[in-house]
Nucleic acid binder design. Structure first.
Length: 491
DNA sequence: GCGATCAGCT
DNA sequence: CACAGCTGATCGC
């Protein structure tokens, strides 16, 4: 998930009212009138304007994100089309499009020319006036003045429970006595520091180890929960399920004493295997908190296996032509390990990783890493590096360290990004970017669901209600996603 | 001086 | 736009 998107939502008044009372699931909802004044920065003024318009549309009734979802019940059609969206759309056409072209990143030939747009308005620091001063979140006036106050967005709380999910950046959350962490990625654990003392953190045993290893979280606040095991926490039955994301990532299934069931996907890549999870087969999900990272049909990518095959094939071919090649795989802290494991197994090569990365990989407790990691770069042709170092200049310099053994670099940048309608599964169309003796392949290895995978998962699950947790920062996006959900679940 | 946080960047 | 951060600057202690 993206931090900026979260921030966008954090700016969305309704989404972070800590005092928001959770409505009964299917009841009509009238949310409290928002109080407090806002001074919106120039920077995000347009966004806020569109939000405010949205709030005000209708006959004096509030039309907010939370209200939309909680009013909707099982009837998707009651989500009214927005009148005020021309504004939002305008805003988007004006937004700067400075994204690197993904065709370039993947080295695809049929690169579209970049869309030109007028330069964005100058950014100004956001300043928000006294806001939610009646909540536990209103920090000292100075910090409120200087930093935007951050209140837990409503979609990070589980109604009818004292639980929050992936919400550590908001200090002590009022009414929250158990904090859940779906997986160990910064945008989900952000805010956790070794001084954490706001309540117990529930997560998988692997994530628990990383909390201690990397963040020095006090063990007394960590509650490891085994996968596929039901725990009763605060009278709620809680079960973690494998999420097919990064190591230790879990879906969280909540079953309340009332029988109401929630599924929070955290970040996940939906798969057919999940359709055999007993909990998902046997209990109707009332609300699905869905990782909507790629909730757009333009996001298509092949299966992981397909991409791994491709990577191994490219590597073998390359080594035939250039036997003295150093193979580099880019990676974040955790995730995408399969890319270098696949190469390692195919070539029978050890994997070099920095000491800090080895500590993390070894903590996974997997026999794969126990046997395949090595401590010295000279001992193998296969290295894992931070994905940020996969640039020509950096790799050229890196190669110099090993100039006695290697004369060229073949690097893979696994990314979930794609927006190609035409490429789809045609990995043959991927072309590397080369400069001198450094070759970089961007490959579509994703640890989030493709649009189709997401759709099939939702259609299998048939939840009463879906709350997207990603890309919810602007109304147009939310409406678009809701219309997909409606389409998927109709009939 | 240190850790935490933030804007900007990829 | 977004992945999941990283970097360097700034803030608070």
């Amino acid at each position: 998930m993206n931090v900026a998107a979260q921030e966008d939502l954090a700016d969305y008044p309704d989404a972070w009212d800590d005092n928001l009372e959770w409505p009964e699931l299917m009841d009509d909802v009238v949310l409290d009138e928002r109080k407090g004044s806002y001074e919106f920065a120039q920077e995000e003024g347009e966004e806020h304007l569109s939000i405010r318009q949205e709030e005000k549309r209708g006959d004096g009734e509030e039309e907010t994100f939370a209200a939309d979802f909680y009013r909707s019940g099982t009837d998707w059609s009651c989500l009214l089309p927005a009148d005020g969206h021309s504004n939002a759309n305008n805003h988007h056409t004006q937004r700067k499009l400075k994204q690197g072209n993904l065709f370039d990143i993947w080295g695809l030939k049929n690169s579209k020319p970049p869309i030109t747009s007028p330069p964005p308005p100058k950014k100004l620091k956001t300043q928000i006036g006294p806001l939610h001063s009646n909540t536990a979140f209103a920090k000292s006036t100075e910090s409120v003045q200087k930093n935007r106050p951050r209140l837990c967005p409503f979609y990070k709380r589980i109604p009818g429970t004292p639980f929050s999910v992936d919400a550590f950046r908001y200090g002590s959350i009022q009414g929250c006595s158990a904090y859940f962490l779906t997986h160990f990625h910064y945008d989900h654990y952000g805010g956790l520091t070794k001084g954490w003392s706001h309540g117990p953190i529930h997560c998988t045993p692997l994530t628990a180890r990383l909390l201690k290893l990397c963040l020095s979280i006090n063990s007394s606040f960590i509650r490891p929960l085994e996968l596929d095991t039901e725990y009763v926490i605060e009278e709620v039955r809680v079960t973690l399920l494998e999420a097919n994301h990064c190591p230790g990532a879990a879906l969280i299934h909540f079953r309340l004493p009332t029988g109401v069931c929630y599924l929070h996907t955290g970040d996940f890549r939906a798969s057919k295997l999940m359709e055999s999870y007993h909990l998902l087969l046997n209990h109707r999900i009332n609300v699905l908190y869905l990782d909507t990272t790629y909730c757009n049909p333009k996001y298509k990518f092949p299966s992981k296996e397909y991409v791994l095959n491709y990577v191994v094939g490219v590597t073998k071919e390359f080594l035939k032509r250039q036997p003295k090649t150093l193979v580099v795989v880019g990676a974040y802290s955790i995730g995408k390990e399969c890319v270098y494991l696949a190469i390692s197994k195919a070539l029978g090569a050890k994997i070099y990783a920095s000491a800090s990365r080895r500590r993390i990989l070894e903590s996974f407790g997997s026999s794969d890493f126990a046997t395949s990691l090595c401590k010295k770069g000279e001992d193998t042709l296969l290295h894992v590096l931070p994905i940020s170092s996969l640039r020509f200049e950096s790799l050229k310099n890196y190669l110099k360290q090993y100039k006695n053994q290697f004369t060229s670099v073949l690097a893979f940048r696994p990314t979930g990004w794609t927006y190609s309608e035409s490429v789809g599964k045609q990995l043959d169309l991927i072309r590397p970017n080369s400069k001198g003796n450094v070759t970089i392949y961007g490959v579509p290895y994703s640890e989030h669901s493709s649009f189709t995978e997401m759709k099939e998962f939702v259609q299998f699950l048939k939840p009463d209600k879906i709350i997207p947790t990603v890309n919810v920062g602007n109304p147009a996006n939310r409406d678009k996603m809701q219309s997909y959900f409606r389409e998927w679940l109709k009939g």
